[in-house]
Amino acid sequence: MTRYNFLLFFSAVIVFFVSGCDANFLVDSNMSMPARNWSYENKVKAVIDVKDSNKPLNIYFKLRHTADYRYSNIFVLLHIKGGGSAKQTKRYEYRLAQPDGQWNGSGSGNLFTYTLPLLTNYKFAAPGKYELEIEQNMRDNPLKEISDVGIKVSEQGK
Score class of each variant (00 low, 15 high):
Asn121Tyr: 01
Asn5Val: 03
Tyr130Trp: 13
Met1Thr: 14
Leu63Glu: 01
Pro99Tyr: 12
Asn37Tyr: 04
Asp68Gly: 14
Met33Ile: 03
Ile151Asp: 03
Val44Asn: 06
Leu96Gly: 04
Ser29Phe: 00
Ile48Gln: 05
Lys90Glu: 13
Asp49Trp: 04
Lys152Ser: 14
Asp140Trp: 01
Tyr60Ser: 12
Val15Tyr: 05
Ser85Arg: 12
Ser53Val: 03
Asn121Ala: 01
Gly107Asn: 06
Phe75Ala: 05
Lys123Arg: 15
Ser19Glu: 12
Thr89Ile: 15
Cys21Phe: 08
Tyr92Val: 00
Gly150Asn: 11
Phe75Leu: 07
Ser147Cys: 08
Ser106Pro: 00
Leu119Glu: 10
Pro34Ala: 14
Glu131Cys: 03
Asn121Val: 00
Tyr60Cys: 00
Gln156Arg: 08
Asn54Lys: 15
Lys90Tyr: 07
Tyr122Thr: 00
Pro142Trp: 05
Leu132Thr: 04
Asn104Gln: 12
Lys87Asp: 15
Leu7Met: 01
Ala97Cys: 09
Met31Lys: 05
Gly150His: 09
Thr66Trp: 06
Tyr69His: 07
Leu111Gln: 08
Ile146Ser: 02
Asn30Arg: 07
Tyr71Asn: 12
Val47Tyr: 11
Trp38Gly: 05
Asp68His: 13
Leu78Cys: 06
Ser72Ile: 06
Gly20Tyr: 09
Pro99Val: 10
Tyr71Val: 03
Glu155Asn: 13
Arg95Ile: 13
Gln102Tyr: 02
Ile74Lys: 00
Gly20Ser: 13
Ser29Met: 02
Leu143Glu: 03
Met1Lys: 13
Ser147Pro: 00
Ser85Leu: 05
Asn30Met: 14
Ser106Phe: 10
Tyr114Trp: 12
Thr120Val: 12
Ile146Asp: 01
Gly20Thr: 03
Ala125Tyr: 08
Gly101Met: 07
Lys81Ile: 04
Thr66Gly: 15
Asn121Ser: 05
Leu116Thr: 07
Val76Glu: 02
Asp68Asn: 15
Gln156Cys: 05
Ser108Tyr: 10
Gly101Gln: 06
Glu93Lys: 14
Gln88Glu: 15
Ser11Gly: 09
Gly20Met: 03
Val76Asp: 02
Arg3Ile: 09
Asn54Met: 14
Pro34Asp: 11
Glu135Gln: 07
His79Arg: 15
Asn58Ile: 03
Asp140Pro: 02
Pro34Cys: 04
Val50Trp: 12
Val27Ile: 14
Val27His: 04
Phe10Lys: 03
Asn104Asp: 07
Phe9Gly: 08
Glu155Asp: 11
Leu77Arg: 14
Gly109Glu: 14
Cys21Asn: 08
Gly150Ala: 08
Lys87Arg: 15
Phe6Ala: 15
Ala46Thr: 10
Phe6Arg: 15
Cys21Val: 06
Phe75Asp: 10
Glu145Asp: 09
Ile14Ser: 04
Ser154Ala: 09
Asn24His: 13
Asn24Leu: 10
Leu63Asp: 00
Leu8Cys: 11
